[in-house]
Design a protein around this nucleic acid. Structure first.
Length: 189
DNA sequence: TCGATGGCTTGTA
DNA sequence: CTACAAGCCATCG
């Protein structure tokens, strides 16, 4: 049972938003992403709370910068395989706690840029009616923006909730070119 | 182990 | 349009 001996935290700031990434020094995989406006300490605290054994370094600053590009609606080269998605109940340090959670996150990753899915449609792809549980996974998404939970909305196409607040969700979707009228997605054909 | 709690959905009024 | 109620089911304490 492997345990992370240390987490490396890198930061990047763009447009008054602080992006923090936590990377395991033993596996090189991202274990947590957090963003906060406008408080850098808060962004870091979210990672430190889960991983008290950490150090700061600019080693992964480029990843944090790439994440900021997603927010701004630009293309990035971020891949699923840089994320720690392994599930192992005997290892408390792993960010993904269950295979259900992993399945939802992977399915969310497949939502294309500029498009949206619903909590319901994700649940149905996983052959379950656990719509609310899908929402819970989104709420605890360790990899915001890379796993685009901002592209998951309610079945009536209203925007739904978001960790960073609904205004933030709206903003990211707008940056991706999604048509919004108030809090509702307007489908473009 | 079991009740409470959700970034939800559908139905009814 | 709003307001509940009941159902769903994975997770947490």
């Amino acid at each position: 049972m492997t345990s992370f001996n240390k987490i490396i935290i890198s930061n990047y700031k763009s447009n008054d938003l602080y992006y923090s990434v936590g990377v395991s020094s033993s596996t090189g995989k991202v274990v947590k992403i957090s963003l906060s406006n406008p408080n850098k300490r808060k962004a870091n605290a979210e990672i430190i709370n889960s991983y008290p054994n950490f150090e700061f370094s600019n080693a992964y600053e480029d990843i944090a910068r790439e994440i900021s590009k997603i927010y701004e609606g630009k293309k990035t080269n971020l891949k699923l395989d840089m994320l720690e998605l392994n599930v192992d109940k005997s290892n408390r340090d792993l960010p993904v706690k269950s295979s259900f959670q992993k399945d939802v996150l992977v399915e969310t990753y497949k939502i294309p840029y500029g498009e949206v899915a619903t909590y319901k449609s994700l649940a149905e792809k996983l052959k379950t009616r656990a719509y609310r549980a899908v929402g819970t996974v989104m709420a605890n998404n360790p990899f915001p923006l890379i796993i685009p939970c901002h592209r998951v909305v309610k079945s009536d196409l209203t925007i739904g909730q978001y960790g960073g607040g609904p205004k933030m969700k709206r903003e990211i979707l707008k940056n991706e070119g999604v048509n919004l009228k108030g809090d509702k997605i307007i489908k473009t054909c």
